[in-house]
Amino acid sequence: MNAPVVSSRMNLPGTGNASSGNALELRGITKMFGALAAISDVTLSVKPGERRAVLGSNGAGKTTLFNCITGDFLPSAGLVRFFGEDVTVFPPHERIRRGLRRTYQISSLFTGLSVMDNVYLACCGVSRNRFSLVRPRPDDALVQAAEMLVEAVHLTADKDRLVGELAYGQQRQLEVALALSGAPRFVLFDEPAAGLSPTERADLVTILTSLPAHIGFIIIEHDMDVALRVADSVTMMHNGRIFKEGRSDEIESDPEVQELYLGGGHAHH
C-alpha cells in the first residue's frame, strides 16, 4: 500500500485553515489523580501536518496526556486548543467531530461486530447519519468510504469476519482504520505497533508514512525504530513532565536520551 488512500475521496475541512497557527496546542496541562500528578504542566504545540513522537518510560504520563487531549479525562488545570479553538471542556465526541482521532493502546474494538461494521460505525460517528434509521445500501457513500478504509489497512479479505475472530495484528490494523475514518485532521496513535511482528510493523510504517500530508499526528511508541521513521520531531516525557523536545535526528543522537531511554539494549530489526 502506498497511495494516500484516505484523502482521495474525502474533502477535508482542516486543509483550509491549516496555515493559521497550530493544529494542537496544550498549555500547562496537569492531571491529578487524588494527590498524585499523572502529568504536570505539559505545554506542547504541534503544527498542522506535523508528525510527533512522544517517548518515555511506562508511567511517564503519555496515555494520560492522550486522554486529556481527547476529553476522556478533564485536565485538573491547563488549556487544550484544537486548530485554534479552545476545546478544554468539550466532551470527547465534540472533539472527534472537529477532526481529532485516536487509537487505543489496548485494542478497543467491537468484537461482536464484523470488520466492515466496525469501520462503518466509525464513518457514521462523524457523519450526519449517526441517527439514521434507514439501513445503508451497498452504494451508500459511507459504506464505500468504509470499504476503502478496510482496503487501506489490508483487511478486505476479512471484512465480513467478526472482529473477535481476527488475529491480534489484524485487530491493531483495524484500530488504525477506525482512527482514519471520516475526515481526520489530527490523530493520536497510542502504541500502534505494540505486539506486532516485524513484517506487520513495516506495514504499519508504510500506512503511517503514506497518510496525506495535511494529517498531523502524535504517536506514542516504544519501538524507536518505528517512532523515528514516521515522526519529524520528538517529545520526551519523564515522570509526567516534558523532559526534552527536538527533531528526530537530534533526539536520536542526544546522549542524555541515549542514557535514559535507549541504554537498555534496544532491539533492531
Binding site: I96, T111, L133, V134
Partner: peptide, 29 residues
C-alpha cells in the same frame, strides 16, 4: 429487526459494548 442493522441500531449496540470508544468515534453516547 430492521433497525438493529441501521446506523442507529448498530451504534446503539456499539454504545452497549463500549461507550467510551463510541464517544471516541464521534458519537454522543
Amino acid at each position: 429487526v430492521y433497525l438493529a442493522r441501521s446506523p442507529f441500531g448498530l451504534a446503539l449496540q456499539g454504545v452497549r459494548d463500549n461507550p467510551r470508544r463510541m464517544a471516541a468515534l464521534g458519537f454522543n453516547v
